[in-house]
């Protein structure tokens, strides 16, 4: 009986641990989500309403598709695919915590369709997430 109870306890702890560690990306009303092959990511802007020609902050949240935390680093940029040009500014990324990044230096200087390109690197694995945004 004691052995069964111990086993149940171990199972419970494993399940509880998995639930506690399950990674969830930021998902506010203005968050945009995208997925690569391994990871999912969201982009949240501050302010929520991006204005043409005005600087804004970007917060990126990343998790693996199987709910594991993202422990790596990112690079991020944006371009207008139809115009074949990017921004005139190079964003700077600050890691806030595992899977959470704050980026300064975004300025969308034209109205239209923009696309965030997030390059993800963790150890030997790399991935790319593209997220569209209509300004």
């Amino acid at each position: 009986m004691k052995i069964i109870a111990r086993c149940l306890c171990v199972v419970f702890l494993i399940l509880w641990g998995n639930v506690a560690l399950a990674c969830v990306i930021e998902n506010t009303a203005n968050s945009l989500k995208g997925a690569g092959e391994i990871y999912v990511a969201s982009v949240t802007t501050i302010p929520a309403q991006v204005l043409v020609g005005k600087p804004f902050l970007v917060r990126v949240s990343v998790c693996s598709k199987n709910g594991q935390s993202f422990l790596g680093d990112i690079k991020i940029n944006a371009m207008m695919p139809m115009h074949k040009h990017g921004m005139n500014y190079k964003p700077s990324v600050q890691k806030i915590s595992d899977g959470t990044f704050e980026i300064k230096g975004f300025v969308f200087h034209m109205p239209g369709k923009w696309q965030y390109k997030i390059d993800l690197n963790q150890g030997d694995s790399s991935d790319k997430v593209l997220i569209d945004y209509k300004l």
């Binding site: 600087p55 040009h85 005139n88 500014y89 190079k90 964003p91 300064k104 230096g105 300025v107």
Partner: peptide, 14 residues
């Protein structure tokens, strides 16, 4: 002072 543009403007071939 808003400094984002000056801090992040980057020299590109274009």
């Amino acid at each position: 002072v808003e400094k984002t543009r000056t801090e992040h403007v980057t020299l590109q071939h274009k």
